[in-house]
Design a protein around this nucleic acid. Structure first.
Length: 435
DNA sequence: TATCCACAGGAAATCAGGGTGT
DNA sequence: ACACCCTGATTTCCTGTGGATA
């Protein structure tokens, strides 16, 4: 990279692009490394494909397939397998057309929006606004639409990350609505497919829903390293130019991902990132060095993106933890500290309001769930019961992420008053002995 | 052994901001 | 203009609790 004097710095963009085009080619079709790419042959999912095919085959004769659930950890090919089967089903010469509507409950997570999304996917003209109407009105409109537009066909509703609905306490309501769609339809038939990474989410499911949705289930076991390798080899053939991959690249990607509970998505991301690093460095080959760097980068990128995408208040909570650990690395951080420092620093940022302890507690849990911090409940006897909070990722990484947020960047050198109070210091010394 | 701290975290209510149909 | 709907963020109210200390 060109790096002259600060003032003198001139980047020759034309030359850069010219070099880039003439430079070594790494990729052939990098889309093949995307999670949404469905290959011609889906490896190591034979039993699941068979199972789903058997369950859905009756759709070709115009009969309603049973509802069912798919379980498996992230990157075990649940969504891909469903998409694969749906493509194959659509290719069959049948008079019955099948409709497939995918709903990612992580993104579309309220009953209203799920109904609206289904409606809007099917409807060509009229769209339902993203808010405003009563739910039962949409339900009735949807029934009408299904019967007129989908007609005698089968409509599959695929609910990805269905466990999130239950977690948000809206699952029973919307799933009940969806399961009773069939009862109210005249010609069209629907089938529900739930996808979840958690087995235990069924515990909080209404028995009525469980009996209609949870009777049949398909389990997706995690891939082991050998299987991941096969998958990567298949994709790499499409994605990369011939001979750019060094021999041990794929086994290493597979081994890394196998450690992460056999996550194929992760393995593909890793391979892709490694390729991109080689491309950026204008190298002729992708080597294990690139993979190792990719592994590191990927983790960091993920965390930085996540932090940048959090709501401002959550970023501010993370900032309080960052500031305390920066100015007093030995300080044992408890919930009360965060509450105090938050109310201290939030006035430095215009438009940020004070939060209650209750709310902050939820934000702390959110950060912990995302793996950015750890928060362990600990009883300090007479000093009460609280959470001990630690950063789970590097402080420099947190700083890097926070400094990219305009509003927060200006307060990253603010030393919280809390750390200077003798009473706080004294109490914290006792905490150190207790934990 | 009873007490009591400093919270944890569930449930319900409230509010603002987006919208609707009449 | 009005009554009403849905959502997401937040507050209010509340009950529960582990263990050092008196």
């Amino acid at each position: 990279m060109l790096r002259n004097n600060e003032n003198n710095y001139q980047f020759n963009i034309d030359k850069f692009y010219k070099n880039f085009i003439q430079g070594p080619r790494i990729f052939n079709n990098r889309d093949a490394l995307e999670a949404k790419f469905i290959p011609e042959k889906l490896l190591h999912r034979g039993p699941q494909i068979k199972d789903i095919a058997e369950k859905t085959a009756c759709a070709l004769l115009g009969n309603a397939p049973p509802n069912f659930l798919c379980y498996g950890m992230t990157g075990t090919g649940k969504t891909s397998t469903i998409r694969y089967v749906s493509q194959k089903l659509a290719q069959q010469n049948s008079e019955i057309k099948t409709w497939w509507i995918y709903i990612n409950c992580n993104i579309i997570s309220t009953p209203y929006r799920i109904l609206a999304h289904i409606y809007n996917t099917i409807s060509r003209r009229e769209k339902i606004p993203h808010t405003g109407l009563p739910k039962d009105v949409i339900f009735k409109k949807l029934l009408g639409l299904l019967d007129t537009r989908v007609g005698n066909s089968i409509c599959f509703l695929v609910l990805d990350e269905i466990d999130i609905l239950i977690e948000k306490k809206v699952g029973n309501e919307i799933l009940y609505d969806l399961t009773r769609l069939n009862e109210n339809l005249d010609t069209c038939k629907t089938s529900l497919i739930g996808i979840s990474n958690l087995l235990k989410f069924r515990e909080n499911l209404d028995p009525r829903i469980l009996s209609s949705l949870g009777r049949e289930q398909i389990v997706f076991p995690s891939y082991h390293a050998g299987e991941l390798r096969d998958i990567l080899i298949g994709r790499a053939k499409i994605a990369f130019q011939d001979t750019v991959l060094k021999e041990d690249v794929i086994p290493l990607c597979a081994a890394f991902a196998a450690k992460e509970y056999g996550d194929a998505r992760k393995a593909l991301q890793l391979l892709r990132k490694a390729g991109e690093l080689a491309e950026r460095a204008q190298n002729k080959n992708v080597t294990t060095k690139h993979v190792k760097k990719a592994q590191l980068d990927l983790e960091n990128d993920l965390n930085i993106d996540y932090i940048k995408g959090m709501p401002l208040q959550a970023q501010l909570i993370l900032t309080t933890i960052y500031l305390i650990s920066k100015f007093s690395p030995e300080h044992v951080i408890i919930s009360g500290d965060i509450y105090e420092v938050h109310s201290e620093i939030r006035v430095l940022i215009p438009g940020v309001r004070e939060l209650t302890k209750r709310r902050i507690s939820d934000y702390i849990n959110g950060l912990a769930k995302a793996g950015i911090i750890s928060a362990v409940i600990k009883s300090m006897g007479h000093y009460g019961r609280t959470k001990i909070i630690k950063l789970d990722i590097g402080r420099d990484l947190v700083e890097k992420a926070l400094s990219k947020i305009e509003k927060i960047n200006s307060i990253l050198n603010y030393k919280p008053f809390l750390l200077q109070r003798d009473k706080v210091k004294l109490k914290n010394n006792i905490f150190k002995k207790l934990i």
